[in-house]
């Protein structure tokens, strides 16, 4: 069922930019249009591009936002997981709770 919804209407999560738009909805209460425009503006792409893996894979690589990885497409020198969230928070100009806690607990601030 999840796959059907994801293919029929989803933004693709980290395959594209769905997680970024979701973050603005979830933590800032932005409606879809506003959230897509906000993220697209920060990334220098169009709202249409945010659901396109062909565009967003490159954007995510450039900005260190983390990507789908497997043995065939490993990127060990790129930011991923919590590292990627540091970059996402900086580029989207938002505080991400777990990133702030990480800084505090790792003595980075």
């Amino acid at each position: 069922m999840h796959n059907a919804h994801a293919q029929a209407a989803g933004m693709g999560g980290i395959r594209a930019g769905g997680d970024l738009v979701a973050r603005m909805q979830m933590t800032r209460g932005m409606r879809l249009k506003e959230a897509k425009e906000y993220v697209a503006g920060k990334l220098g792409v169009t709202p249409f591009d945010l659901s396109d893996p062909a565009v967003m894979t490159e954007v995510r690589s450039e900005l260190g936002f983390g990507r789908i990885h497997s043995y065939a497409i490993s990127q060990p020198a790129q930011a991923n997981l919590i590292e990627a969230k540091f970059n996402i928070g900086r580029v989207l100009d938002i505080r991400i709770n777990c990133v702030e806690k990480f800084k505090e607990r790792a003595g980075l601030q």
Binding site: Q7, A8, A9, M11, F48
Partner: peptide, 18 residues
Amino acid sequence: RFVGVDLGDEVVLSCDGT
């Protein structure tokens, strides 16, 4: 068998229970 929204009309999925 399968239908979907138009390109560009995609929405965020809440994904509860993941």
